[in-house]
């Protein structure tokens, strides 16, 4: 098992290294002066100099890459240009990350059980109207942009019902229940966006598992449907769901940019957009990398969970991209 974790960690680090290369290359391959691109067309010469200085854009690409690598491992991305001028970038990132974590946690607590339940029911009732309703509703909502869902929720829940809050960020010092109340709408938006996807994956996994001979063996042994599900189907059927949730966690932290804007929530996505608006490249870069690291940790966790669920998965991890 230790060997497995080590191998998996090495793979994660390789991915991170490649990502660092890509992120370093992006400003350098853009046509024209990279500093001007980053600082914006109207930047003063002093500003340009500051950009060049702090990002080391005049250095050779290899030096830029080492510097960025160092930043990742020391968690020091320098100071913010403009979002909060002079403050260490990581302070901003950590505050935003904390906020994002709250939203993600609540969203998962609501979405995961519902989606898995939906998937299980759909699989068990395969090809009935219940199945079709679950699958089609999920399909209709999934891949609707998160902000569109958010705007609908604003109009149809926040405006008519006092209970739902327009602003996801509770006033400072609020109790946890009040905080949850404020976060409810974006969490529902996440539910709308993800329910169909997760339910569909769970459904497919469950159908495969229900069709398997070992499930038939269990039924033939005289176990009840409930026992068969609990002891034999669940652990096999939910493996794809766990894998997908692992990959989606990074998206939840960093991909809900527009949703955080709609509900004016100071999460990671919001920070990144403020950085874009104010041409604050260090903050932007650190934000993006943070999301990547979260993605890696989340997929690592998912892989470990799957390895625990399925002994066989321990063997062939990292065989395939």
């Amino acid at each position: 098992m230790l060997k497995f974790i080590a191998r998996r960690l090495v793979l994660g680090l390789i991915t991170l290294a490649i990502l660092l290369v890509i992120i370093t290359l992006i400003p350098n391959i853009a046509p024209g002066d990279p500093a001007r691109k980053i600082a914006g067309g109207t930047a003063t010469p002093e500003r340009l100099a500051q950009v060049n200085e702090s990002l080391g854009l005049r250095d050779p690409v290899s030096t830029q890459l080492t510097n960025l690598g160092q930043s990742v491992f020391t968690l020091d991305f320098g100071e913010s240009f403009s979002v909060a001028a002079g403050q260490p970038v990581m302070d901003l990132v950590f505050t935003a990350l904390g906020n994002s974590a709250k939203l993600v946690a609540l969203s998962l607590i609501i979405m995961v059980p519902l989606a898995i339940l939906g998937g299980l029911v759909a699989a068990y009732k395969k090809d009935t109207w219940i199945d079709r309703t679950i699958v089609n509703t999920g399909l209709a909502f999934s891949s609707i942009p998160d902000f569109v869902a958010g705007v609908f929720l604003l109009a149809f829940l926040a405006v008519p019902f006092e209970f739902f809050k327009v602003q996801a960020n509770a006033p400072p010092g609020s109790s946890i229940l009040v905080q949850i109340q404020h976060l409810l709408l974006p969490a529902i938006a996440v539910l709308m966006v993800y329910f169909g996807y997760i339910a569909r994956i769970t459904r497919a996994g469950t159908i495969t598992s229900l069709d398997a001979d070992y499930t038939r063996t269990a039924f033939m042994r005289g176990l009840t449907t409930r026992e068969v599900f609990r002891k034999h189907v669940a652990r096999n059927a939910l493996q794809p769901t766990v894998a997908v949730l692992g990959t989606q966690l990074g998206y939840l932290f960093g991909g809900m940019v527009a949703l955080e804007i709609v509900f004016q929530y100071p999460g990671l996505g919001n920070l990144i957009i403020r950085a874009v608006d104010r041409a604050d490249y260090p903050v932007l870069r650190a934000g993006v990398l943070t999301v990547a690291i979260i993605y890696m940790l989340a997929t690592l966790a998912a892989d470990l969970l799957i390895a625990w669920m399925n002994p066989r998965a321990r063997l062939n991890i990292g065989e395939d991209a």
Binding site: A212, D213, Y214, R216, T217, A218, M220, K231, H232, R235, N236, M309, N310, P311, R312
Partner: peptide, 14 residues
């Protein structure tokens, strides 16, 4: 009952 393929007939994760 005993099925055709023993590999499929036992639960792979237990």
């Amino acid at each position: 009952m005993v099925f055709q393929d023993p590999v499929q007939a036992v639960n792979p994760v237990l």
